[in-house]
Design a protein around this nucleic acid. Structure first.
Lengths: 207, 207
DNA sequence: CGGTTATTTGACCAAGCGGTCAAAACAAGG
DNA sequence: CCTTGTTTTGACCGCTTGGTCAAATAACCG
C-alpha cells in the first residue's frame, strides 16, 4: 500500500519528508511570485524543485494546497515586525526602526512580498479571513499604542491606521514594483530608499 | 469573403465596430483586473461583454491583442496627471494637487490601477519598454522641476524620484490593496486617506 | 539476505483553454 | 425580390494543465 504523506494530518514525519516539503515550498514561492497563482504550473514548480510532477503531488495533494501552505507559513513571518514595536522605546525611533525593518524585508524577501501582493490584488480569496481577524487585531493594537504615544505628545498627530498603510505601501513598493523602479532609475536603490523613508517618517512623526 | 476587422490596420472603421471595441475593452478591463492576465479567459470576457467567444475574436485577433490594446490605451491616461504639474504654480500646492488627483484615480479607476499593478508585478513583460523610455523621461522632467523648486528654497529637500515613488505607492495602495484596507478598517476610507496624505505631504514638503 | 514500507516515475486522462472555420443570420442597396 | 458584404454562431481542434494510477525503484529493518 502506498499512502502519500500528503494525506497525513499534521506535520510530516520523517526528516526526508520535511526536507522535501521545504524544497517544494521554496520552489513554489519562486514560481508563484513570478507567475502568479494562475500563471504558475505544477510542471514548473516541480522542475524548479528538481522533482517530477507526480512526485510533487506525492507530498502535496494539490496546487491549491501548496499555495495555501505557502501563504499560511508566510503570514506569521510577514506580520512579525509589527509585533516588535516596543511600548517602552522612543516612539519616533521605534517606528523608524519598523520602517527600516520592513524595507529590509522588501529587499531580502521580494518573492514573499510579491506573493502577498498578488493574493491581495485578486481580492485575497484565501487569506481574507486572516486579514479580518488577526491582521485587524494587530493593527488595532498598534494603532492604540501609537495613539497613546500621540496623547503623550511624543508623536505628531497622524491617523495611526493610515500611517501604517503609508509604511506598508512605501516599503513594499520597492519589492512589488521593483521593475518600475528599475526602469525609472536604471537600477535598484534600496539605500536611497532607506534614506528617503527615514527622512519622510522622521519629518512626519517628530512632534 | 469575410475578413475580420481585427486584421485591418488602424482604427476600426464603422461606428458599430468602434462601439463593440469599446464594449469589449470595458469587459476585458473588468476581467483582467479581477483575475489577472493568466486567470482571465476569453469566455469570461466574452460573457462580460455579452458576446460569444468567436464573435469576440472577430473584433480582436487574440487574447494578447486585447490585453495590449488595454494597456496601450491605459498608459496615456494613467500618466497624464504628472504632466499637469505647473511650473508656474506654488510648488507645495502643485504637488498636493497631484497627490489628490492620483488618489481620486485610485478611487474612481481601481480596475486600471490593478491591471497596471498586475502587469508590473509580473515583471512588466509587455510595457517595460514604455517604462524605460516614456515614463523615465517624464520622471526625469518632473524630477528636474522639483529640484528647481528645491533650489529656489520653495520645497523641502527630498529626493525627487523617491518622492514620486512615495506618491505612487501611497495613492495606488488604496486601489491595489483595497481588500486589505477594507479588512482592517471594515470599509473603504478614501476621505480619511485624502486627509492623511494631504497632511503627510504638506508636512514633508513645506520648507 | 528477504520482506516491508516509503518514494519515484512514465503513461495516461478529463477538463479547460485559445483559437479556427464554415455556415448561418443579418443588413443595405438596388 | 435578389445580391453583396458584414456580423454572429455552433461545432470543432490541438495544446496545456491539474491530477491519477499502477508499476518500478530505493530505503529501511530484522
Amino acid at each position: 500500500m502506498n499512502k502519500s504523506p500528503a494525506q497525513d494530518s499534521g506535520t510530516p514525519r520523517t526528516r526526508i519528508q520535511r526536507a522535501k516539503n521545504e524544497v517544494i515550498l521554496e520552489a513554489a514561492l519562486t514560481v508563484f511570485a513570478r507567475e502568479g497563482f494562475r500563471g504558475a504550473t505544477l510542471d514548473r514548480i516541480a522542475a524548479e524543485a528538481g522533482l517530477s510532477k507526480p512526485n510533487l503531488l506525492y507530498y502535496f495533494p494539490s496546487k491549491d494546497a501548496i499555495y495555501e501552505a505557502l501563504l499560511q507559513g508566510l503570514l506569521t513571518t510577514w506580520l512579525d515586525p509589527l509585533r516588535a514595536l516596543d511600548p517602552q522605546g522612543d516612539p519616533v525611533e521605534e517606528i523608524l526602526a519598523y520602517v527600516r525593518r520592513k524595507l529590509e524585508m522588501a529587499r531580502d524577501y521580494p518573492r514573499e512580498s510579491r506573493l502577498f501582493a498578488g493574493e491581495i490584488l485578486r481580492g485575497a480569496p484565501l487569506i481574507r479571513p486572516v486579514l479580518e481577524t488577526e491582521l485587524r487585531r494587530m493593527v488595532d493594537d498598534s494603532a492604540a499604542l501609537i495613539a497613546r504615544w500621540q496623547g503623550e505628545g511624543r508623536l505628531a498627530e497622524v491617523d495611526p491606521r493610515h500611517l501604517l498603510f503609508s509604511i506598508w505601501a512605501q516599503t513594499q513598493h520597492y519589492a512589488d514594483f521593483a521593475t518600475q523602479v528599475q526602469s525609472v532609475l536604471g537600477q535598484d536603490d534600496f539605500d536611497g530608499a532607506a534614506a528617503h523613508l527615514d527622512r519622510v517618517f522622521r519629518r512626519l512623526l517628530t512632534p
